[in-house]
Nucleic acid binder design. Structure first.
Lengths: 187, 187
DNA sequence: CGCGGGATCTAGTCGTTGACAAGTTCGCGG
DNA sequence: CCGCGAACTTGTCAACGACTAGATCCCGCG
């Protein structure tokens, strides 16, 4: 179903998107080529453009899908702590999405679909902070938690934490980090 | 001095590097074109290649210079807290360097100059953690501090913290965040 | 049944880029 | 003054993004 149909591909959009995620994950967004993706899908070099308009359009679609998945992942976690873990888990399970999402110069930041998905993710993020934040500074706590999770996830993906984590599970390490900083007695 | 010389440019390497940093800062690493940089410097399209070999070589040079500057910045800060602030300050004052440094798929990670500079920066980072870490888990504290600073800096550069910070100074906000998480009584 | 229209894909082309090769100019030491 | 290497130029090729025009298919409507 995902592959060979005679003329109409069936679901070329998804095929190209999936292939793009594969390339981004293994070689980075810079290595992305519409023509290469077309070859992988077995279609002509201009076929992907019909679904994504542009190379930028493709990356915009990746970012939009990423934010949508991200919002779902966050929504599934109960409190702030688990939401942080979910943040890190999303980065490891969807590295390509994550990588593109936080490089706004790669895509169109004014895309309607993208904005909707991003707003949803942001709302989930804020809701997470609301479950904690007993001390007077919810905004500051939010920035702190977000920075911690995002920094951990980013360093993890860029390979700067491989020796620090070792052969342990990254999520478990992050859980300990969160426990270290966010449990001085209150909570 | 920086511009017109007859045949020999004088310091084309630096001129190209500076122009590259300018492009990366304003349009991102993806928009980087050797031919465009050559045009800006007023030299032929192949001149930059003589100094950097490759597009990848140019980005490797950017990353190497970035890590060197980064190590200097960190070394100038006394304790862990100030080192965190210095981390954020580096990201805001050298956004192009920072952006490239933490995208290893853009450059050659086995370059000798790069490795030397990165090792120096890593050593400074570790030394910073050594000044604090009174509780039993220095490694975990290090990961926490690094993640916090790196996450804050990254989110700041990607524009995800602009409304949260508002018109205040980013460094000052980060100082408060650090105070919030790293001062439960000890220190 | 067939036919028309829109969505999907193909084929061809143009300007730009990265990479490479070979030649040219410059400066500097012997 | 000469030659030798570094710095730079000119020319070229394959690949890519973007665009256009046209072919093919699917689907509903008469």
């Amino acid at each position: 179903m995902t592959s060979d149909r005679a003329y109409h591909h069936g679901d070329l959009r998804r095929a190209v998107l999936t292939a793009a995620l594969d390339v981004i994950r293994t070689e980075g967004p810079a290595a992305l080529s519409l023509r290469d993706l077309a070859r992988r899908a077995g279609v002509s070099h201009a076929a992907p453009a019909h679904h994504f308009k542009d190379r930028t359009g493709l990356l915009t679609a990746v970012a939009a899908e990423g934010y949508a998945l991200f919002a779902d992942t966050l929504a599934a976690a109960p409190d702030l702590r688990e939401r942080g873990v979910a943040y890190v888990r999303f980065a490891t399970t969807h590295p390509a999405h994550f990588q593109v999402m936080f490089q706004p110069d790669l895509y169109r930041t004014d895309d309607p679909d993208l904005l909707a998905a991003k707003d949803r993710a942001t709302a989930e993020l804020r809701a997470g902070v609301a479950t904690l934040a007993p001390t007077g500074a919810p905004r500051l706590t939010g920035i702190a938690a977000w920075s911690l999770a995002h920094g951990f996830a980013t360093l993890l993906l860029s390979g700067n934490l491989t020796d620090a984590v070792g052969d342990r599970d990254a999520e478990e390490v992050f859980r300990e980090v969160g426990r270290l900083l966010f449990t001085p007695g209150r909570d």
